[in-house]
Every structure is written in structure tokens, then in C-alpha cells.
Design a protein around this nucleic acid. Sequence first.
RNA 1: GCGCCCUUAGCUCAGUCGGAUAGAGCAACAGCCUUCUAAGCUGUGGGUCGGUGGUUCGAAUCCACCAGGGCGCGCCA
Length: 595
Amino acid sequence: MSQDIYARMRETVLDALRTLAPDLPDDIAARVEVTPTRDPAHGDMATNAALVSAKAARQAPAKIAAGLVAALSLRPEVAEAAAAGPGFVNLRLDPAAFRDLLPGILLAGEQYGDSPLGRGARVNVEYVSANPTGPMHIGHCRGAVVGDALANLLAKAGFDVTKEYYINDAGNQVAALAWATYWRYLQAVGTSLTEDEYAAQVPGGLQYRGDYLIPPAQELLRLHGDSLAGPGKGIAPVEQWLDLVRDFTIDAMMRQVRDDLALLGVNQAVFSSERALVATGVVDRVIAGLEADGLIYQGVLEPPKGKTPDDWEPREQTLFRATQFGDDVDRPLRKSDGSNTYFANDIAYHADKVLRGFPTLIDVWGADHGGYVSRMKSAVKAVSGGKATLDIVLCQIVHIMRGGEPVRMSKRAGTFVTLRDLLEEVGRDAVRFTMLTRKSDAQMEFDLDQAVAQTRENPVFYVQYAHARCRSVLRSAANSFPAQALTPAELATVSLDSLTAEADLVLMRRLASWPRTVEAAAIAREPHRIAFFLYDLAADFHMLWNRGRDDAELRFIQADRPAETLARLALVAATAATIRSGLAVMGVTPVEEMR
RNA sequence: GCGCCCUUAGCUCAGUCGGAUAGAGCAACAGCCUUCUAAGCUGUGGGUCGGUGGUUCGAAUCCACCAGGGCGCGCCA
């Protein structure tokens, strides 16, 4: 039986509805929902069943609602059913129906909220995929956290999830990186060239000037002495060093990326290399497949609508028929020198993911790749014959703020805030939680002061404080009742009849909505909803806690009334378990006490 | 100019595949510490959901147009 009391009631409602309207089409039945009421005055839950089925049943909504009220009133768990508004049926449950959820929550522990929704279907979530050309910075951080939490969320919702990172280690960018490392190497061996003189000889100019390439250059010096340098410590012919330096630098950068990600608590299982896809012929095979399907042609694109660049001229290119799959224009696959565009390799990469057996692909991208969404989706349709789907989660820009002012400079990298700086300043938990307190497709301000503040403004603190309070209560109870076992398994067996206060019910209703929150967030690919759920749950708990301030009889621990105390401890332990369940999705540590 | 994203209280933001009187924090004002942690809680005031039309029994939510902000716009990855 489902953990989800709303899902169970939905089945009950559907049974009753089918009695009233035997020929109800399935697509109408699918629209029936049972949701928590926004206003407690309307009861515990409400259903739209009468409204959505009225047309198909050829009956007035009010009439169906009346029939549902009559049928549902007979159910033992329903204390009151009433028609309301244009045809809603409001249900007030016997409080025991909510109390009865607690044992299941206690026994499930962190697994509470796990859902069979995904039925074990495989999903590939690709995120971060920062180019290995430098330290991870703040621009990568949001995508890393959102992707990781989304992957955790989908796993909780019953999908078989693979977390993946795509290494863009092919193309001009990594060649430029090699030239930059080589400059640091020449400096290390004592070149007489100035940086400007060197830059003038680099194809495309010297693109990466950060200090972070000095350590790999030092390592090259240690391994190879000055053998990679040219006569007079100038530039040697590229055949003598470029491949070596490039591969060496990529390895060094990727080690750093993995280290940074590990600090953030992100550990992808699969790292796919663009170079490997090229080297093993995957790219050629995929392109050949598209060619065989007639999806590639030589053609000339129209200039961009409305804006013709000054240097625009008609040019014949190798194009992919993206427009056949919903894109606005066809997209180029080859550069004029005959090499593949990034898009061509990316098609192959996604085709590879499909071949590896993923019917659902999710990419988490930065907002600057927004213009890429429709072409990639069209490519996935093309290479999978429409059998695989690609969802793309775009993460908008994060502005780091301190004291109300934007923060731009980094002590290390000079031009951007590195991930490491951010982690050192506010810590992993605050970074992860805060990054999930906004919808990913909205821009966000990350307030450094707020992220470390120990007040209600700071959701990280507020939620962790609620968990710490739960644990504190359970520790105190162990002292007050040394003879009583207080394990979840024990608490799952105690009588809960004394949990009758409105604040108890508010909290239990919140706990009851956790499974549906997980499913809805997973379907919408919106991990931020978990953060908001936890914040609301924490507020409910803090409220309950504070009732004990006004009335000592409402405190959790009553030494002279063990039965009531155990019931309350069960509620507290269930709350703690649910918080841990949610924090696990977010990758945030539940703390035992605040210090 | 074209495409995508965003616009909700003074500020920062939620709003469950369209649902009932649009919610929270901060800020403002008024209360609560001999206590299982006051790092918290309670209450008050504050919104034409950017604008105008449309679809619907019902729109912050869907559609069209307009305004403002962001991102992007043929051989960069």
C-alpha cells in the first residue's frame, strides 16, 4: 500500500466516482486529483473529481459531488465530507488516519518518501561538464548542486539514475589551454621571452593567464626538465610538446575539478570524454548514421532573422536537418577546415548515451547555453528515432552578494569567484541548500552574509535547527526514561491517541505530504521544492516546540505521563526522519546539535 | 531585429500538469525568556500577481499582443 495518504484517498474517490459514472473515460479519470487543502477550514484534503468528470458523465458537478459525499461519508477514515464551491468535495479525515502514518514513517526512516513512480526506468543526469580549462567557479556551482539534487530526487522517486560528467577535452579550447600551460613551463625553465612576445606567437592568442597553471607547469619541469623547450628556451616545434602538454594539463585540471566537486559533495559515477568519443569512432559512426538517414546535406543558411552581421556572407556548409525535429534552423556539423563542430560531437555523445540504454536523458546547463536547447533536443529525437527524450534544466546566473554589494573578484583566479573560495567561506551545506532555494530558471542572489547567518532568514540554519531540536528532545527523553527503549522500531508501536492538538495535526499533515512532494518535484525536475518543503516542515515543528513555552503540559517530555510522552516522541522522531530524508536528497548534512 | 527565460507585498522569493478569500521570510509595529536551546515563537499592517485582450464553470498559472530585465543569435566550446 502506498505511503501516500493522498494517493490512497484518490483511489477511494475514483472507486466511488466509477460507481456514479460507470463509463468514465480513462483520460478523465487521470485528471482526478486529491490534494491538501490550502485553507484548513476546508478540511484536510479536497478532490476535483466532480468538476473534471461532469462533462463526460453528462451530469451537473453538484450532483456528482453530492453522490461522492454520500459514498465517501461511509468510509471509516472520513470524518466529514462536504460539497463546496463549484463542485469540490472537501474531506476531513479522522485524525487517526494521520496518526496511523507515523509508524510507517518511523520504520522507513530516511527512506520515507521513496516512491515507485519511476519503476526502475533508467535516467542519465549529466551536469557540471565544465571545460577542463581552469578552476571550478561560481558559474558551475549552481548547476552542480541542482544536477546532483535532481539526480538524488529521481533516485528517490524510483528511477535508476546515472550521474554523469562530460569532459570537453577536444577541440581548440584545450589546445589553447596547452599553449597557456606551455607559457608557464617556459617561465619555469627561464625563458627570455616576455608574455606579450609569447602571446604574439600563439595561434588565437594567449587565452588563459591565471596562476592556476603554474603548479602543472612546475610538475612538467620536474618530469621533463627543459627538454620540452626550444633552443634558447624559446618555443619548440609543436610536434615536440603540444599533445603531451595538452593531455597532461587536462589530467591536472580534471583532478582539480574532481577535488572541487568532492568538496561540494558531488561525485559523478561516469566521466565521458569527448576525445575518447572521437578516437573510438563513435562520432564518425553517428554522423554516418544520420547521413544514411538523409538528415545531413550541403546547404547555405539564411542570415539570422532581423540581424545580419557585417561580415555575413552566404557559405555552403554541412548541415543537420534539425528543422525536421522541431528546431528553427538547420545546424552546421563541420567547420570549413573539415573538422567537426562541437555540436557534431555533442550529437554523438547523446547518441552514445541512448545506446548505453537510457530512454530519458537530462542535461543541466547554464543559461548561456539556452540557445542550444532546441537543436540538442532535435538531435536526440533524430538519433533515437524518437524513442528517447532529452529534458534540459537551465540554471540562470548567480550573483554573489556581500553586504548588499555584488562580489566579483577572487583572491585566486583574479577574475571570478572560485567554487573553492565559496566553500571555504560558507561551507558545503550552506552552499548546497542555498543554491536550491530558488527555481533554477530564475536568476538568484547568493547572499554570503545570509548563508552563514544563524537566524530564520537563513533556511539552512532554520531547517538544521529543527532537526537538532528533534534530536535534543530524544536525547533528553533517554535521560528521563532510562528504562524505555526509544528506537524508531519501539516508537512505532506506541499508542498515538493522545496526539490530538491542532499543532500536532498540522505537523502530521505536513509529514503526510512528503511523498507527494517528492513525486511532484521529480516529475517537474524541480529539486528546489524539497528545500521549500523542509523550510515549511521546520516552521511547523518550531511552532509545536514553542507551544511548550506557553503551556508546560504541552512540552514533549512529561516525566509523570509516559504514554503521552512516547506518543510525542514518535511524532518528533518521525519529523526528524522526514527532515533527514529531505536533506539526503539535497546532499546536506543533518546536524545533531547546534554549536 | 529574432529566439529562449524572467516580471507576484517596500526588499528577497514560494505558489503542487488551471481550483475556493494569492502565501512565507526580511523590513515596520505590538507581544512572549525562573524554559526539553528565545539561534525561537505569536499577532498587526502591507499585493490591480508588469499591462491589455482571449480561452474556461474557474486564470498568478494556458494563448495572443505590448512593456521592462537577463541570456543567446552561421565553421566558440
